[in-house]
């Protein structure tokens, strides 16, 4: 018996990342919200199940508590190595994150400089290799380079996370052809990370074939973070459904959709 179209299109399409099943394909950052309640409400509105965190030296004068105390156990933590510029620092940060958050998942970021925040591919590959060998589930933030993505997957990374455009820029996806190519050939899930500005960017990422989208500033710095979180939730779901539905081909000229026979005056 064939399935009805409705039953084929679950509203919350499940997917597997590093052996765990998730119903939301939206991963959310936790930084830069106007206040704590805006963050918590936005995370809830987004429907996300995975949230990112960073590790920083505690303030010796005024310790404010950890993110775990704020967020609790509602979400799976994905700690990052944001700000690290060498493989050595990224590996140590990952080890500290594993200890602090009791997870071997790591969003591996090794940036080349603090101005562009572009990934340093050489250091990234080196850190990824070490961390995979040390038992980490490595999710590397990388450039939109199909070859680099393949090399990261070959090293044993659980996913690849190419940027849409520079971190926090809100430029959207600057090279959709590259993202589409990565998605078409990758043997691990592709998570679009960085550069998302608005809901249509997130939908496009999914239409290009991404498994999920990770974003932060687009929601945290929106005029209404909660409303934007709802928009991102729906955009990711819509983009995923559209990718599976199959878009029509583009044509050079118009093609009438109404029947052409029997038009008055013809």
């Amino acid at each position: 018996m064939s399935q009805s179209p409705l039953s084929q299109t679950s509203l919350k399409p499940r997917w597997v990342l590093a052996g765990l099943e998730f119903s939301s394909r939206l991963l959310m950052g936790t930084a830069g919200y106007p206040n704590q309640s805006a963050m918590l409400e936005s995370l809830a509105a987004s429907g996300c199940q995975i949230v990112t965190a960073s590790l920083r030296r505690i303030s010796l004068d005024a310790y404010q508590g950890s993110l775990v105390e704020v967020i609790g156990s509602h979400y799976k933590f994905l700690p990052n190595t944001a700000g690290c510029q060498t493989a050595r620092d990224a590996v140590l940060t990952a080890e500290l994150a594993r200890e602090a958050l009791d997870t071997n998942w790591i969003k591996l970021e090794v940036i080349g400089d603090r101005e562009t925040l572009y990934p340093d591919a050489v250091e990234l590959l080196s850190a990824a290799e070490t961390l995979v060998k040390n038992g980490f589930t490595v999710l590397p933030y990388c450039t939109d380079d199909p070859i680099l993505c393949r090399r990261l997957a070959d090293l044993g990374c659980a996913a690849v996370m190419p940027l849409g455009s520079p971190i926090g820029s809100g430029q959207g996806i600057n090279n959709p052809q590259a993202i589409e190519r990565i998605c078409a050939t990758s043997e691990v899930p592709v998570i679009l990370d960085a550069g998302i500005g608005t809901a249509s960017d997130a939908a496009l990422a999914m239409e290009l074939g991404c498994s999920a989208v990770l974003l932060n500033s687009a929601v945290a710095k929106a005029l209404s973070p909660v409303l934007m979180a709802c928009a991102m939730r729906d955009a990711v779901a819509a983009g995923y459904a559209a990718a599976r539905a199959g878009r029509i081909s583009k044509k050079f000229y118009a093609e009438a959709s109404s029947p052409q026979l029997g038009i008055l005056g013809s």
Partner: peptide, 10 residues
């Protein structure tokens, strides 16, 4: 010694 804490991050 380094003492680190999990905080908000992207």
């Amino acid at each position: 010694l380094e003492i680190l804490v999990a905080i908000q991050g992207g």
